[in-house]
């Protein structure tokens, strides 16, 4: 399945968001996710199916002012 994660193109096997995070090698508990401009909460990732051409953002805390 061809998708876009954080602005980069990927071909992945995962069908659910939490599997995708693991497949791509993102690590740790400090992650926030959005699919096609909509928040997918931490506790919804395992049930959130991903589809061809989805645009996914995976964010984490960063220093900020």
């Amino acid at each position: 399945m061809h998708i876009r994660v954080n602005g980069e193109e990927f071909d992945v096997k995962a069908h659910f968001l939490d599997d995708l995070i693991e497949e791509l090698g993102y690590a740790g508990d400090w992650l926030a996710t959005a699919v096609n401009n909509e928040l997918v909460a931490n506790n919804e990732r395992s049930n959130h199916r991903i589809y061809e051409h989805d645009r996914i953002e995976i964010l984490s805390p960063m220093q900020g002012g």
């Binding site: 993102y26 964010l59 984490s60 805390p61 960063m62 900020g64 002012g65």
Partner: peptide, 30 residues
């Protein structure tokens, strides 16, 4: 105050910052 930015593939490269957040004796304002 803190922000959110795109995470980097391959691990918790910002783990020290995550620990900083967890150890904070202050309110977090994203």
């Amino acid at each position: 105050t803190l922000s959110l930015r795109r995470e980097i593939i391959g691990g918790e490269q910002r783990s020290r910052f995550h620990k900083f957040i967890e150890m904070l004796d202050a309110y977090v304002l994203p």
